[in-house]
């Protein structure tokens, strides 16, 4: 991989790290997800900057051009992260649903122990 490409990838990596750090500082990103993106950026920079590591990657991911191995690696990472976040979102949705249902039922229970009887019927029976 030529020097310009290595520099460009490193510049993008440093940009992502700075952006993620600013999100973490403003508490807009959970520390676990911040670590994930910073770790991935550092790994990507390491792969393209260290020739022995880069050669190893191109051997593991056989492509016609070495640069394509980096693209395949990046796309695979993004795909895995998307699946991971979909699972996380589903779990959160399930929790929100459970909590909302629990709040609704608890409020009803607190108000009365059972649903109101039909007022017409209650009136008719003189209760």
């Amino acid at each position: 991989m030529n020097l310009q490409a290595v520099l460009a990838i490193n510049a993008i990596g440093i940009g992502i790290i700075v952006f993620v750090l600013s999100l973490l500082r403003r508490q807009r990103l959970h520390i676990g997800y911040g670590a994930l993106w910073i770790g991935a950026s550092v790994l990507g920079m390491l792969v393209v900057s260290a020739p022995p590591v880069f050669r190893l990657v191109t051997r593991v991911i056989p492509t016609s051009l070495p640069f394509q191995a980096v693209v395949v690696m990046a796309l695979s990472f993004i795909f895995i992260v998307l699946i991971y976040f979909s699972v996380q979102l589903s779990a959160l949705l399930r929790r929100v649903t459970d909590i909302a249902q629990h709040i609704g039922i608890s409020e009803l229970e607190a108000k009365s122990q059972a649903p109101e009887r039909n007022p017409v019927e209650v009136e008719k029976r003189g209760e």
């Binding site: 909302a100 249902q101 609704g104 409020e107 108000k111 009365s112 649903p115 109101e116």
Partner: peptide, 28 residues
């Protein structure tokens, strides 16, 4: 109307709303 209601704190959609009702019906 004097009818009991489960008030969900946010809009969950038709399915989860019914599930809240089923949950209550099962408990009662």
């Amino acid at each position: 109307a004097g009818v009991a209601q489960i008030v969900l704190p946010c809009n969950l959609g038709y399915g989860p709303a019914l599930q809240a009702g089923f949950r209550y019906a099962e408990m009662a």
